[in-house]
Design a protein around this nucleic acid. Structure first.
Lengths: 337, 337
DNA sequence: CTGAAAGCGCTTACAG
DNA sequence: CTGAAAGCGCTTACAG
């Protein structure tokens, strides 16, 4: 059996209170006692047990990040930002992966009830306002990322605005028949991006045509995959006439689309969405979401709220930015390799 | 203040033992009592607190995954496999991110001492045998991924063999001057892949030339980035004469290399390493590491050990597989777009 | 099937 | 600066 605080106290000839003080840097310990405790602890390989500390102090020192799909690029970048913020803070990080086959609301509620963490970061979890509202009663710090609800801090990007900018840029390059390479319509980001796409058509006075909105057949990860992008672009290239240009709902789909164009040997200008690291190396024009910054900022926000539960709720909305690279530059000419 | 087991017990007119039994499905509770407890709990939004359960039962129901860099593709895929395995198991998952600026061994030891988890998955953590050995005294289930030590279960890939196969394949396609696009030499995977590269040269009776081993200048993530790959390939293409072909130490570097070839408008056959999802869409030939399977299997292994601490230690070594795509097909002809 | 009670390993006023 | 003691919210033999 591993050593406990009692073993250390006995061997060091002090009380458990003193041992506790040493490990919590709470001061009020003589140099001598401190050294003795530390050396005994080191010798016996002792360190306070996280769970006992958590229970006694009523602080878990843990943040939990709740996500729907763990291996997607958006989440990876967010996670990177979270880690950057956490790197020199004394918090543990737990990940809760939502099971897509079970009830979302129940899973979220369960997580909250267990009181595992001191604060929760919900990433890309989309619920109705009334559901979010019902969680307020748990009275625990929550920050929403890529989602919006007035009762919690949130950090998100204006998806509609992003799509709008993409279409408008394509238009300004001289394109008129602008397709959208979409994904699962019921997904929140797609809904918002579709909205922006349509808004652009209205403002630019372009004739709207539902057939220009195309998605792939593979719908895992809600269709945000290279494969789905490939499939969709193949459909687009088979249209007659072929659209002038295409707005892709995500970079990862755009990667598949690029491949499709190569295989079909037909090229149209495209703009992606996200600005994942790869985009630069693929020469992909895109709408940049500052994912890492969002993760960093959201974490900071959450920690601030933990330390100050009464601070004003803040809604942070980033406006996505157009990044121009070569994928929009072949505009106008019919490129055949 | 949130409800505790006492509140529920009182309101349901039973003892706390009964409430506990209900939530632990330990049976021996009358239907009536069970229903009553459940309805009261639901009404008061009660669920047992994880930390108190953990302390009392001496089980944390948590697995911890320890990694050096959180946002790299290898880790992402491993994590995906871990989650797949965990999805219907009753375990929490914590992530511990090693801080590259602090002492590695101390951090690992600290993690172990806190006894946060019931089992630990170390991913790409490379220590000397004597260090791993010293951790055996903590007597806690540990599975190593992408690392080998005889005292713990491990799951890894034969990196030397993988590199060997890549070079041999390139050779069989008729190439003789085969470069290696490398990364930080002190990184364990690079060491092993270099070994395989050299072994192939010997066996194939090719003249070894250290100048053929090239790396980029950017060394974040140990040089496993698109940028480093781009830089290195640019150097390779400037060599006189240009090498016939190139083995890239990772797919992500190969992506950068592909871009470099495009920008320089010079193409040589290349083979990557990993088989990340993108590889297929880039037409990148590669050496496949079954990352997701490794994560899945390692997790299963770890859970098995938690349940049966005395089971025989197992070392699982996957042999990587050559996947042929278009990036090796332009062999022989001098392609200029 | 049920409850009283001890114990898990800590923290933290409180009194000195 | 130090220690005795209560308490954190559970689980789990034990006795019935």
């Amino acid at each position: 059996m591993a050593a406990t605080i009692y073993d250390i106290a006995k061997k060091a000839g002090v009380s458990i209170a003193t041992v506790s003080r040493v490990f919590n840097n709470s001061g009020n310990v003589s140099d001598k006692a401190c050294k003795k405790v530390l050396s005994v602890a080191d010798e016996m390989g002792y360190h306070p047990q996280a769970f006992a500390q958590g229970l006694a102090s009523r602080k878990s020192n843990t943040l939990m990040i709740v996500v729907p799909v763990i291996s997607n690029y958006f989440f990876m970048e967010i996670l990177g930002g979270v880690q950057d913020k956490l790197s020199d803070m004394n918090y543990e990080l737990s990940i809760f992966n939502i099971n897509p086959n079970k009830d979302l609301k129940k899973q979220v509620e369960h997580v909250l009830k267990r009181r595992w963490a001191e604060g929760y970061l919900f990433v890309s979890i989309h619920l109705e306002d009334k559901d979010w509202k019902s969680f307020q009663k748990y009275n625990v710090p929550i920050t929403l990322v890529d989602e919006y609800f007035e009762g919690f801090d949130s950090v998100s990007v204006d998806n509609s605005q992003g799509a709008y900018r993409a279409v408008k840029a394509l238009y300004e390059y001289g394109n008129r028949k602008i397709a959208m390479l979409s994904a699962l319509e019921s997904s929140k980001p797609i809904k918002d991006r579709l909205k922006g796409y349509k808004k652009a058509f209205e403002e630019l006075d372009l004739p709207f045509d539902g057939k220009l909105i195309v998605k792939g057949d593979t719908m895992n990860r809600d269709g945000f995959t290279e494969r789905a992008g490939y499939e969709a672009m193949m459909k687009i290239l088979k249209m007659d006439p072929v659209p002038d240009a295409c707005f892709c709902a995500s970079d990862i789909q755009a990667v598949g689309a690029l491949k499709a164009m190569q295989d079909a040997n037909k090229f149209i200008p495209i703009i992606g969405y996200d600005d994942i690291e790869l985009a630069e190396y693929m020469g992909l024009s895109t709408i940049r979401q500052p994912m890492k910054e969002m993760g960093f900022f959201a974490t900071q926000n959450l920690i601030d709220r933990i330390n100050n539960p009464d601070k004003t709720i803040s809604q942070t909305i980033y406006t996505p930015e157009l990044i121009t690279r070569s994928s929009t530059k072949l505009n106008g000419r019919a490129v055949d390799v």
